[in-house]
Design a protein around this nucleic acid. Structure first.
Length: 207
DNA sequence: CCCTGATTCGC
DNA sequence: GCGAATCAGG
């Protein structure tokens, strides 16, 4: 494999997005992470943060992480317990549909070309703990981490991204943590902390 | 052990 | 220019 313009472009884009060299290498195929790193250096686009502040990933897609979250809904979206409430919510709000246009053009949805969607098909996510049985430390840790969540969609999850759901699946305020997961676990460090707990510590913590 | 980027140096 | 090997670190 050689560094065609297209491949270099992909490299540049992913590197700018904060993807790791190995991730880029897998995406491109036919090259190792060493090759990617070597190319990165040769292209002189090392130091990912130079002018700006260190913005790890998904910076382009998910702006304004700071601005005060809306009062009501925000609380639910930030709550550690992923999706406890059924929350009926009108299934298909296809109400506002004028009879004028049959809507022939399906609109070529922005599918993520050049992306490797690996949806975890194996053993699904373990049962979620309820908020009141999570240690305060872990809870605080999670709250902190979720501010840095990469907010990935289902399709963006990979084998090594945290699959902890955040927000209400019935709304648009729903995404997955997406931070680097602990090796062999489906979650990042913080979420592993609340997802996997020794029975003993659970018992001890109660009351 | 998994992973990260950085550097070297023969090709 | 390329990238495997190696280094240094998390």
């Amino acid at each position: 494999m050689s560094w065609t313009d297209e491949r270099v472009e992909t490299l540049k884009r992913m590197w700018a997005e904060g993807q790791s060299a190995s991730q880029i290498a897998k995406e491109l195929g036919g090259v190792t992470r060493n090759a990617v790193i070597g190319k990165v250096h040769r292209l002189g686009l090392s130091n990912r943060n130079e002018d700006g502040t260190e913005i790890p990933a998904a910076a382009s897609a998910a702006p304004e992480p700071k601005p005060a979250p809306q009062p009501a809904a925000a609380a639910a979206a930030t709550t550690p317990k992923p999706a406890p409430e059924p929350k009926p919510e009108p299934a298909a709000p296809k109400a506002a549909a004028p009879a004028s246009q049959p809507d022939p053009a399906p609109m070529p949805q922005p599918v993520n070309f050049n992306r490797r969607p690996i949806v975890p098909a194996g053993q699904p996510l373990p049962p979620q703990p309820s908020a009141n049985e999570i240690s305060p430390e872990a809870l605080a840790s999670v709250r902190e981490v979720e501010k840095r969540a990469r907010k990935l969609s289902l399709m963006d999850l990979t084998e090594r991204t945290c699959k902890w759901p955040i927000g209400d699946p019935a709304t648009d305020k729903f995404w997955f943590c997406g931070l680097p997961s602990v090796a062999g676990k489906p979650y990042c460090e913080a979420h592993v902390g609340v997802a996997f707990q020794p029975m003993s510590s659970r018992r001890d913590r109660r009351r």
